[in-house]
């Protein structure tokens, strides 16, 4: 028998082992739910899977009587739009601020302390200000994501640029690069995959801000729906929504990862250089 540290699973086993915790979780849930419903058929805390499917079908996936819209897709679309807009703006700002901050000592001296201080402001604490300034509409929700996520991306990119090999910077100068062409031909292209990495890491944070702002003031959205039906203890709707948000977050991460590999084939190999 080999030592435990030397035993490696083959593909099939690895898949099985990976799925195991999920399967266990579902089984535990089904049993617990069954036990509670056995005791009290009206129990709301752990609805059965059939109940959840039924509720979702009736109240979220059927066209609403009032407007004819399907609430579930409406919520998904609204939330993804806010998230996409917020993340997109944050990434653009992150690149535009982070690169000069890391590359140009004069800019760093001028703005680094400000950015450091600004990124310490808890975004949720200024949410009321955003609602006051931008009203209850879309802008405030997107702004919260931008304010919360941009400083993280900026600081991450700044550090990446600062730790950029000095040899490459000097080499580029001896090849005739100005500060500007150095940025557009060398630094920014090499920072793009790192920017996507930073976006992936901040997606979780962005979801927190999205759901917080939707919980407080919105008329649709995944976060809004969860907080709305909470009043009726509608676990049969909350649980599928949470599951859906998790799936969306996972997919976004997965797609970004694939996207990075596809667009920047050199990025995965660079470590050997």
């Amino acid at each position: 028998m080999k030592r435990l540290i030397n035993q490696k699973p083959n593909r099939g086993n690895a898949l099985l082992l990976g799925l195991l915790p999920f399967i266990i979780l579902v089984i535990v849930y089904v049993f617990a739910s069954h036990a509670r419903l056995q005791e009290n058929a009206e129990d709301k805390l752990l609805p059965s899977i059939a109940q959840m499917a039924q509720t979702m079908d009736k109240s979220a996936l059927s066209p609403s009587k009032r407007s004819g819209e399907i609430i579930f897709w409406n919520d998904t679309l609204a939330s993804l739009q806010r998230l996409g807009l917020g993340i997109g703006i944050s990434a653009t700002l992150g690149l535009m601020i982070g690169v000069p901050l890391g590359l140009i000592p004069l800019v760093r001296a001028g703005f680094s302390p400000f950015i450091a201080a600004f990124s310490m402001v808890p975004p949720i604490a200024i949410l009321p200000i955003l609602f006051i300034v931008f009203g209850m509409g879309e802008v405030a929700k997107v702004a919260l994501i931008v304010i919360g996520v941009t400083p993280i991306i900026v600081r991450d990119l700044q550090h990446r640029v600062e730790e950029f090999p000095k040899e490459q910077l000097i080499k580029a100068q001896t090849l005739g690069a100005s500060s500007w062409t150095l940025a557009v031909r060398i630094i920014i292209p090499q920072m793009m995959p790192r920017l996507l990495d930073a976006v992936r890491l901040t997606l979780g944070t962005a979801w927190i801000f999205l759901i917080s702002s939707e919980a407080i003031a919105a008329t649709e959205g995944l976060g809004y729906r969860i907080f709305l039906v909470r009043r009726y203890l509608a676990m049969d709707m909350i649980l599928p929504y949470v599951l859906w948000i998790t799936v969306l977050a996972f997919l976004a991460d997965f797609i970004l990862k694939k996207f990075t590999c596809k667009l920047f084939p050199w990025y995965a190999k660079k470590d050997s250089l």
């Binding site: 490459q168 580029a172 090849l175 005739g176 690069a177 100005s178 062409t181 031909r185 050199w266 990025y267």
Partner: peptide, 26 residues
């Protein structure tokens, strides 16, 4: 550490020529 990892071998050498002739876009 002085090669540009995001450029191919050819582009690494072309870069010097391009930087010299195209001051704005490189």
């Amino acid at each position: 550490y002085s090669l540009f990892s995001h450029l191919s071998v050819l582009e690494n050498v072309m870069l010097g020529i391009e930087l010299g002739k195209s001051p704005f876009l490189g």
